[in-house]
Design a protein around this nucleic acid. Sequence first.
RNA 1: GCCCCAUUCGUCUAGAGGCCUAGGACGUGGCCCUCUCAAGGCCAAAACAGGGGUUCGAAUCCCCUAUGGGGCACCA
Length: 523
Amino acid sequence: MVSSGRLRAVPGSGRRHRKDLGLTATSPRPVRVRFAPSPTGSLHIGGLRTALYNWLFARHHDGVFVLRIEDTDQKRYDPQALRVLMESLRWAGLDWDEGPEVGGGYGPYVQSERLGLYQRWANWLVENGHAYPAYETPEELEQMRKEQEAGGGKRGYNRAHRDLMPDQRAAFEAEGRPKVIRLKMPLEGEMLVQDAIQGEVRFDYGVLQDMVLLKADGFPTYHLAHVVDDHFMAISHVIRAVEWLSSLPVHWQLWQAFGWEIPTYAHVPVMLNPNGKGKMSKRNPPRDAHGNIIPVLVHDYIAAGYLSEAAFNFLANNSWNFGDDQEVYTPQEAVARFDLTGINPTNAALQIDKLDWYNGVYIRRLDPLDLARRLRPFLESAGYEVNVDLLSALAPLLQPRLKRLSAEEVMAYAGFLFAEDFPPPPREVLLKGFKGDAATAGTALRSAGEALAGLAAFDAAQIEGVLRAAAEALGMKPKEFFSLLRNALTGQEVTPPLFDTLPLIGRDESLRRLAEAAAALAG
RNA sequence: GCCCCAUUCGUCUAGAGGCCUAGGACGUGGCCCUCUCAAGGCCAAAACAGGGGUUCGAAUCCCCUAUGGGGCACCA
């Protein structure tokens, strides 16, 4: 039954032996892989990871990465989806060699433009006894399912039309009943396949059903389209989500029926919710410890302020690992080392904390001016007017502190720089953490102002010098003095370091804030 | 209900019969640095799901159980 020499049976468990296969070494075919999303909505984060593994594999082998659009579900088609899908892939740095907008020698790359091909090959299957027309209506099938559930018996299509007499068939045709084409699955026997990630996979054909290949509307189902397209696009390795593993026998039968060279299959594990319960779903978005929603769609990750560099590294390092205990690596480094069989077959929870850590790592690696440039649109879309020079000066201070590119985080650290006007903070804020009385505090603020006013250059080093001297002259602990100044100058408990922050506020404005705070305390 | 797959610290993982006293990372806790918060440095707690085999020797191979996950459409 399994005729391909490449896909020989190997004794023992898959886990143990899957790396002995030499899958690519023994394959004479040039590496061509594809990512084949359906344009029914925005790209799922797990989908991006699957795309990423395909891309890594293609680049590692100097192969070809194809983007194919599986728009065979007319009911769920979303015209916006394709654009968003491509945006998401490009954001992550996954460029495709063939597909929409770039073309290629195996097109068209959109399935709805290939309908004739599927119909032709579906008919070929019927003519050669591998498939048959079935005339049940969706309502009849629904009825059948209900009876099965009530009876507790076997589920699935009962194969009523598998062996129709020619006159029965003619009668249905004469009636004008719509028909589908179904695959004739073997009634017994076993399928045995070596999956590059999952290892040995075995299915008993007896429990499988006759899946629909061509729908009544003339569109193919995934099963037919996948095999026909992967054949005519010369795909060498099918790297897809493990959700498909259950339908592998259908595809396997199709390959056998057509007699085409079978690609190597690699089923990548799914991404589970952070709590490990169930796969990530946009219908039931997961939440973190604080009750915040964890994004599921790639465009939500972008909007949440994640860097594509961090997302790439994080996704690559989930289910696959670099080796050498190295956690941070570039796409180029990953390409050099990538090995399909090194993907862990176990489903993995999405560890959002680790993504946040990666994001911090990559934010810190940015050129500060680049950070400012990337931050700008987030601030603007939150309604802030951005002074580019100020933001550029602020960026290095923000850099070790930000977890994401977000207006919210920037404001938490530096909102006092963006305020339209800055009235003196209320007393309780000014005196927060201060042990002395208001008069002492006011005196301290005034002497800080005097020290700063006399400075030749208003830079961090000089500011630090005079303020430390002022603290000593006042007989105050630096800690106490500086937090008093922070309160008066920013109204915030948490800010970037004071000495670096003062030049951003500016000398005049700083002196004004100190004076007004002192006045407020006096009154 | 049926089919398939998996199971190593809370989480992501290393592990290919002896290099395992089970390694790394995130997170957590402590200490250091320190004007707050970060960043950084150091340290710590934390795992082979359970039970049977095979073997001189098992996290690793086999079987059973349990648990988790995926799938059972004229969706992909």
